[in-house]
Amino acid sequence: MTWWYAVREGFANLRRARGSVWVSIITIALSLWLVGIFLIGAWNGWQVLQKLKDKLEMEVFLLDTVKVQDAYHIRKSLLKIPGVDSVKFVSKYDALQKFQKEFGENIIDILGENPLQSSFRIRLKKSFHTRVRVQKIMGQIKKLSGVEDVTYRYDLLKIIEKYLKIFFGIGISLGAIIAFISLLLISNTVRMAIVSRSEEIKVMRLLGATPQFIRRPFLVQGFYLGVFGGILSLFLLLVVIWAARHELSLQILNAREIFGFVMGWGIILGVLGSWRAIGKYLKEEI
């Protein structure tokens, strides 16, 4: 009963101040839209970068004195290190074959022996592609007997990390600024609803309505603003995705989670915005 009242009155608040309601819904939608575009971009960028990272392998070169049986033991030890996903053995002979394939020359003809070392190619688990973790793994591998050297493409990792950081930095600060602006606008809309109903609020207090009961319709109003803004932004996002696919023929990946996130974020903004207005304009009254 009391919730039903809040649901109805929250909706009535929307109808009473249509102008500012539209402005808030549109700004929420725009901010969510921008956040959504960033997220879809980030998500796709992330996928691309992850694929790049997955291709980065760690190479463990073995001493020439290591026998096949020792190599088997080293492989077992390598697999025990946390973060190691798969280990592939590349024998001296394999390395030679690969070299010949790539450079088209037989080194044995030139040097009279095979100078290449046997090695392990290690793939790391996804979350271990950070500098700190890579360094830790390298340290652990170097301690194993029979290992001569470990290499990893640090420079590439560094570049990838740098760009990811910049990308996220821009996205997060942009998102935060826009979110803040829409928060102010929502709170302003709800404040107008509070002011326009101040007479009613006074009467409610005199008749013994609890503060929660008085606040609830305004919270519900903020919730509605968030929901409607969210729905509008989803439409706008779909338009962008459609355009990116058909006009620019980009392979944009759909992400339902992002739609859910945008919607949820809209609701959070709506409720926080009205919470702010209530705290500011209603608290001292009640």
């Binding site: 009963m1 009467v203 409610m204 008749l207 009961f213």
Partner: peptide, 11 residues
């Protein structure tokens, strides 16, 4: 009715 509604009396 408002006086009853806001204290949660049934319709």
């Amino acid at each position: 009715a408002f006086a009853l509604r806001i204290i949660g009396v049934r319709r």
